[in-house]
Design a protein around this nucleic acid. Structure first.
Length: 491
RNA sequence: CGGGGUGUAGCGCAGUCCGGUAGCGUACUUGCAUGGGGUGCAAGGGGUCGUGGGUUCAAAUCCCGCCACCCCGACCA
């Protein structure tokens, strides 16, 4: 009762905030803009990490760890990079506290001022490239394929749990290559990894594309991204992969001797996904009853709820459940048996729906008599009674089916909310009435992009990679265009 | 930093206009019943009313200052 959340219809934004808190994913911390990721939320993040980490390893990358603090001077080296991050950096200026002479707790000791201030990393390109300089001498040292799992800090004005927090968790891959082609190929490969993860694990369809100059990562030559549509039709950038050219190699003087014996600058890439993916996961599938998790990322795939009166019944059920549980575990399915007597079955049903557990099994005295169980699926909120001897096969099939079904639903939603327009008037009308993704011709100039943004709040999310080339006219200026691009209001 | 709003029990709120020593829902504790969709009844514990000052016999309530947070804008994965 107290755990009810507002409906998406009533207030989508409030629905999201409440869901995150009520489902025990995260809560606000004493520090504005930061969050506490609670055990249940963190266990979903761990599932994401595990799947991604495996894909990184499978594509030849190794994990490493670089420090949280970056000397301020490093930030002066790559001009556009500085400009991109300068406005949102946290800076460490002192290294000691002392007791206040007036007895007001502790104060910063003014005598403990650092010679050079330290920047809390907003991203690690600078510290990593300053290190790579020492690691790379020859083409034999390349490619260098490194990833790190870390936290970063970007001092945001307005924050929302998971979607935008001042501190967030992510992975950042940083690679160095001997040739431009190889670096570009790496950038695209990692974009594909992200897209695969989004679609096959998160069950969330994404548009792969290239960012326009104004949306590009500070310091990159090209930024590729995956863009997903949330249920309210807004776009969420869910991952980025950057081709850095030789920008950081120049800034940090990272050169290698090539096969011809000549000195050359190294080519770089970087790519990342963050705890923002948690926000994407929530907003892609969940409903008014709570979270809906894809089985591949659900910390618990199956929950078993006993229905009993008195200890004898519970014991009889528990005995039966032990066998069921073992059988499911043998199939690699994660199972929780909730035999608590402190909550009623109905309460548990609601609770596990809120938490998005894909499959629920209920078993009571009637089932014991009949040799049956009740199996309920979270995505469709349906349930059926099946024979006990078919349970593990049914559950296995159901998990696959749920994974596929929520993907299909998300894909259908995106299709229904994606519109192609020819004119700017049409564009504005669609944006106002229907929202979602809009494909339209654009003349390729930053001025036009800015005009659309100022007038409609929609931005170019990306220049889709799978969009065919076609001659056309920019919807705003009428100038020639060779491709439609993807517009949307974004998170 | 501009515009709007809110601070009262863990959470959500009423009480403020019109001053009289704090209440509702929920959560929590205990007992009994209940148990196939958030169970019912009864009893109980818990609050410096954001903060500092002022007016008054008396302040959650009136006056002045300060602080914090939220929403809308500018910035952003």
């Amino acid at each position: 009762m107290s755990k009810e959340i507002p409906t998406r219809e009533e207030d989508y934004s409030l629905w999201y905030n409440e869901l995150v808190k009520k489902a025990d994913l995260a809560e606000n911390s004493p520090v504005r803009g930061c969050m506490v990721i609670k055990p249940y939320g963190y266990s979903i993040w761990e599932k994401m990490q595990a799947a991604l980490d495996k894909m990184f390893k499978d594509t030849g990358h190794s994990n490493a760890y670089f420090p949280l603090f970056i000397p301020k001077s490093f930030f002066s080296k790559e001009a556009s990079h500085v400009e991109g991050f300068a406005k949102e950096c946290a800076i460490v200026t002192h290294y000691r506290l002392k007791n206040d002479e007036n007895g007001n707790g502790v104060v910063v000791d003014p005598d403990a001022k650092l010679e050079e201030e330290l920047i809390v990393r907003p991203t690690s390109e600078t510290v990593i490239w300053s290190t790579y300089k020492n690691w790379i001498q020859s083409y034999r040292d390349l490619p260098l394929l490194v990833n790190q799992w870390a936290n970063v800090v970007r001092w945001e004005m307005r924050t929302r749990l998971f979607l935008r927090t001042s501190e967030f968790l992510w992975q950042e891959g940083h690679t160095a290559h001997a040739t431009k082609d190889e670096a570009v190929a790496e950038t695209v490969q990692m974009l594909e990894v992200y897209a695969h993860f989004a679609e096959h694990f998160m069950a969330m369809p994404v548009v792969k594309g290239l960012k326009t100059e104004s949306e590009r990562f500070a310091g990159a030559e090209d930024t590729y991204c995956i863009e997903a549509m949330m249920q309210d039709g807004k776009a969420l950038q869910s991952g980025t992969s950057h081709f850095l050219g030789q920008n950081f190699a120049k800034a940090f003087d990272v050169k290698f001797t090539n096969k011809e014996g000549k000195l050359d600058l190294v080519w770089g890439t970087s790519w990342g996904v963050s705890t923002r993916l948690m926000g994407a996961l929530i907003m892609a599938h969940s409903d008014d009853a709570g979270l809906v998790l894809p089985p591949k990322l659900a910390p618990i795939q199956v929950v078993i709820v006993p229905i009993f009166k008195g200890e004898d019944q519970l014991n009889a059920i528990s005995e039966k459940v032990a066998g069921i549980k073992a059988e499911l575990l043998r199939k690699g399915i994660s199972v929780k048996y909730d035999a608590r007597d402190t909550h009623k079955p109905g309460w548990k049903f609601a609770e596990y729906e809120l938490k998005g557990i894909p499959v629920r099994i209920a078993i009571g005295p009637r089932d014991l008599e009949n040799g049956t169980v009740e199996v309920a699926r979270r995505d469709e909120k349906t349930k059926e009674t099946i024979a006990l001897d078919q349970l593990s096969n049914t559950v296995e099939r159901l998990l696959d089916d749920i994974q596929q079904n929520i993907y299909n639903k998300a894909l259908a939603l995106r299709a229904s909310k994606t519109t192609t327009v020819e004119t700017y008037d049409e564009f504005k009308k669609v944006l106002e009435t229907k929202g979602g993704f809009i494909l339209a011709h654009w003349d390729g100039t930053a001025a036009t992009e800015q005009k659309v943004k100022d007038e409609t709040k929609a931005t170019i999310r990306c220049i889709p990679l799978d969009q065919p080339d076609e001659e056309g006219k920019c919807m705003v200026t009428g100038n020639p265009s060779t491709k439609k691009v993807l517009f949307a209001k974004a998170y």
